[in-house]
Every structure is written in structure tokens, then in C-alpha cells.
């Protein structure tokens, strides 16, 4: 074998090895979670998902408050962040004067780079006291966490949405203007439909990030296993529970219940990312369908 062919083969196997390594880790993590969670799965089964009581001293563990807290705080974050982020992206891509576009765009990207623990600290020391003065209580809870999460994902959605909007071909926009469209018509009828895949993708990825976020939420959630009556009361989330309670997990069932929660988080996050992937795949397939159609037309035409 020539040395070139040998190199080629070594390279081939090496890259293949690394690719499989990633797959291996994924499966390994899943298996570890499953094994460690097994005692809790055996003890509580699917009731774990709906049981509200979390009483370590009594050996009772229900995952519902943490799961509920994760979903509601994420929902609040999305409701607050998505419209604002898309508004910012539209402003940056088509409305803002060009001398503002670049400095504001860079600021958004910098905001996206702030570590989440900083958002959490800011939330605890500035936003939570504000909430306390406004609505009472201790200022911690689902809404506070949702708000901090929304600040965290907003720049991410805004930056990707702006980039997607900017991929709209100039000539397509000009065609709409040339028919008498206003700026708003062009944004709504040409740019947003054109950028739709990118926008939805960024929203789903942000959803995944918000759902799994640990630090920012742990600071401001209040961390009590409670399904509150109002979004302004303290609660907890899956990641916050995991970050807080491993130190205290003194029984096997406690320890295992935390792993059960981690397994649930893993599965939900995996599902969210798969949704994003599926969304992009579907989109790509549609495009290739169109190409297919076009080829058919060419063939028909040739036959004539």
C-alpha cells in the first residue's frame, strides 16, 4: 500500500472513531441516567411525573413541581422574549438607519455572550427586589425566573432572526417595493416568509436553552417544591433542583429521584432539539421536492 493510501485510511478511521465517540457519549450518558434513576423509577413509576409532594425526610418524591416550574418559567420567557426579539431583529435589518445598525447589532451579540450566572446575579440583586416592591412576597418565583430567562434568550433570538431576515435577496425586496409596497409590507410579506425557517429554528433552540438553564434560574426561582397559585410565588425547576440538592441527597431514593429528574430533563431537551432538526429537515425536503418538480417540467417540455 502506498503511503498516501495508508494516510488516507488512517485519517478515515480516525475521523470515524471520533464521530462514533460522540454517539457513544450520548448513549453512555443516557444509560448512566437510566441506571441511577432506576430505583426511583421502580418506586414511583409514571406517578413521579404528576405527584406534587417532595418530602425528602418522609422519603416521598414527586417530580411535578420541578417539571411544572420548568415549563411555566420557560413559557413566560418565550412569551416575553419572542415578540420583542423579532421586533428588534426587524428594526435592525430593515428599519434602523445604517449608522445604528452595526453598533446595535454588535451590542445584541455581546448581550448574547454574557454568562448566565451574571443574569442570575442581576436578577437576584436588582430585579427580585423590584418585583418584591411591585407585587409583594420575596420577589422570587416563576415570573422573576421567566423574566430573567427572557433577557437571556432575547439577544440570541434577535441575532439569528436578524441574520435570517438579512438573507432575503435584495432584488426580491426591490420587486415588492417596485409594486408599490411600503417598508412594512416588504417586511411582513417578503422578508418574514423568506426568513421563516431561520426564525422558527432560533425560537426552538432558545426554548431548549431556556428549559435547561440552571444558574440564572437557581438564583431567582426561590427553590421550593411547590406548585404555586400565582406566577409571582416561589417555585423550582428541574435544573435548579439538581444544582441545589445533590449535596443533601442522603438516601438512595433521594439520590435516585434526582437522577430521575435529570433523565426527564435529558429526554425533554433531546425532544426539543430533535424538533428543531426535524423542522430544518422538512424545510430542506420541500426545496428538493420543488427541484424535482422542475425537472419533471423540463422533461415534459422536452417530450413536446
Amino acid at each position: 500500500m502506498s503511503s498516501y493510501a495508508l494516510k488516507e485510511r488512517v485519517f478515515h478511521h480516525l475521523t470515524k472513531f471520533f464521530a462514533f465517540l460522540v454517539l457513544f457519549f450520548l448513549v453512555a450518558i443516557f444509560v448512566v441516567l437510566l441506571v441511577k434513576a432506576y430505583p426511583a423509577i421502580e418506586a414511583f413509576g409514571f406517578d413521579f411525573l404528576t405527584d406534587e409532594k417532595w418530602a425528602p425526610n418522609l422519603g416521598i418524591f414527586g417530580g411535578f413541581p420541578a417539571i411544572y416550574g420548568s415549563f411555566i418559567s420557560t413559557l413566560i420567557a418565550m412569551l416575553l422574549a419572542v415578540p420583542v426579539a423579532i421586533g428588534i431583529a426587524i428594526f435592525l435589518s430593515e428599519v434602523a438607519p445604517s449608522r445604528l445598525k452595526s453598533p446595535m447589532g454588535v451590542s445584541i451579540e455581546l448581550l448574547a455572550a454574557i454568562p448566565s450566572v451574571v443574569y442570575g446575579m442581576w436578577g437576584l440583586f436588582y430585579f427580585a427586589p423590584l418585583m418584591r416592591d411591585l407585587v409583594g412576597g420575596n420577589g422570587l418565583g416563576l415570573f422573576t425566573a421567566g423574566f430573567i430567562l427572557s433577557l437571556m434568550i432575547l439577544p440570541f433570538i434577535a441575532a439569528i432572526t436578524r441574520d435570517s431576515l438579512n438573507t432575503t435577496p435584495q432584488i426580491l425586496k426591490e420587486s415588492a417595493y417596485a409594486l408599490g409596497a411600503t417598508k412594512w409590507d416588504v417586511i411582513k410579506d417578503v422578508m418574514i416568509p423568506y426568513a421563516k425557517a431561520g426564525i422558527i429554528g432560533s425560537v426552538i433552540l432558545a426554548l431548549g436553552r431556556a428549559f435547561g438553564e440552571t444558574m440564572a434560574v437557581t438564583f431567582v426561582m426561590g427553590n421550593v417544591h411547590n406548585v404555586p397559585d400565582s406566577i409571582f410565588q416561589a417555585a423550582t425547576s428541574i435544573p435548579a433542583t439538581l444544582a441545589n440538592e445533590f449535596n443533601e441527597a442522603d438516601t438512595e431514593l433521594y439520590y435516585s429521584s434526582l437522577f430521575f429528574l435529570a433523565l426527564i430533563l435529558f429526554i425533554i431537551s433531546f425532544a426539543i432539539i430533535s424538533l428543531a432538526k426535524f423542522h430544518f429537515l422538512k424545510r430542506r425536503k420541500k426545496v428538493s421536492d420543488r427541484k424535482h418538480k422542475w425537472h419533471k417540467l423540463v422533461k415534459q417540455w422536452r417530450r413536446k
Partner: peptide, 13 residues
């Protein structure tokens, strides 16, 4: 005053 461009510019609809 309408305009037609160098490349076709059908909207994605």
C-alpha cells in the same frame, strides 16, 4: 411605473 428585473423575482408564494 412598474419594473422588471434582470432575474425573475417570483415571491415565495
Amino acid at each position: 411605473i412598474g419594473m422588471i428585473f434582470q432575474k425573475p423575482t417570483a415571491f415565495p408564494m
